[in-house]
Design a protein around this nucleic acid. Structure first.
Length: 265
DNA sequence: AAGCTTCGCAACCGCTCTACA
DNA sequence: CTGTAGAGCGGTTGCGAAGCT
């Protein structure tokens, strides 16, 4: 650090006891803030930034100069994970600290800790990957039908009953979707495959058989089908829309997010 | 004991944000 | 809307103390 003066003649470098005394008495007299006036008021040959920094990082009596406890260090790690290098926000949760102190502490103590922790984690992950073979996951696949499929051809499924009431977002039922409509297997999951609704148990069993035997090239996701009608191998199929989406969970998630922000602010 | 290296922290710098004319 | 000044923040620097050889 240069102990010389700047071009404008303002002093730089370490603060002397006398300078500290002048700054302290100035702040106690006029209070914090209006830093551009502080050098003049205090009779200091320092820039306003330097005065502010000296007060906030060193002279302010609210600063807690004790060594951080384990809990506080743990809190700092968590907050840093959450907020990144936003020291002013982090220090807001660590009473008595200063942003500069927290920043310094992070760079000198915790950064290494974090690096070594990450290294350990990646080693453990590598070990796991060596010993544990990944499972082949068999996911249920949605089913598509060809236009000639007997399941959807009226001459074969004339016994199939009204197939399904197609809900609209406002909850009304569109009766003109009766032909070739399909019930989702589970009406809470719009991504699931559609199953023709039939009162005939043999037909139902055959449908399931068909589902299990279907070749991969016949598989398409229902979401894809919904995105673009041109992809429909079977364009007349209508899928149930979720009639009333329950946003209560979303609301509660938003509430939790707000709570986090409240804590941080 | 002397010289060198490492570490911790105070302080500076440059940039962004905000308020106001 | 734009320009300007003050305030604040995060990155970086460099001094001095502590530790090591």
């Amino acid at each position: 650090m240069e102990k010389s003066k700047t071009r404008s003649g303002v002093r730089k470098g370490a603060w002397t006891y006398e300078e500290d005394k002048l700054l302290k008495s100035c702040i106690s007299k006029y209070g914090e803030g209006k830093w551009h006036l502080v050098p003049q008021r205090a009779g200091l040959n320092r820039c306003r930034k330097s005065c502010r920094l000296r007060w906030l990082n060193y002279l302010n009596p609210t600063i807690n100069k004790e060594i951080l406890s384990e809990d506080e260090v743990d809190m700092m790690l968590r907050l840093h994970k959450l907020l990144g290098n936003r020291w002013s926000l982090i220090v807001g949760r660590l009473p008595g600290g200063t942003a500069n102190y927290v920043k310094n502490y992070w760079h000198t103590h915790l950064q290494k800790k974090m690096v070594s922790r990450k290294l350990e984690e990646s080693k453990e992950r590598e070990k796991l990957e060596e010993t544990v073979k990944p499972h082949a996951i068999i996911k249920p696949q949605p089913l598509t039908f060809s236009a000639n499929s007997p399941w959807l051809n009226r001459k074969y499924i004339n016994f199939v009953t009204p197939i399904v009431a197609v809900s609209t977002k406002d909850g009304t039922v569109a009766n003109d979707h009766i032909e070739n409509t399909m019930l989702p297997i589970n009406d809470t999951d719009v991504d699931c495959a559609a199953q023709p609704y039939t009162t005939n148990s043999t037909m139902s069993a055959m449908w399931w058989e068909n589902l299990l035997n279907v070749s991969n090239d016949k598989i398409a996701s229902s979401s894809l089908l919904q995105e673009d009608d041109s992809n429909l191998e079977f364009p007349n199929v209508n899928f149930l829309e979720v009639p009333n989406v329950n946003y209560s969970n979303w609301d509660s998630n938003l509430y939790e997010f707000d709570s986090i922000l409240d804590i941080l602010n």
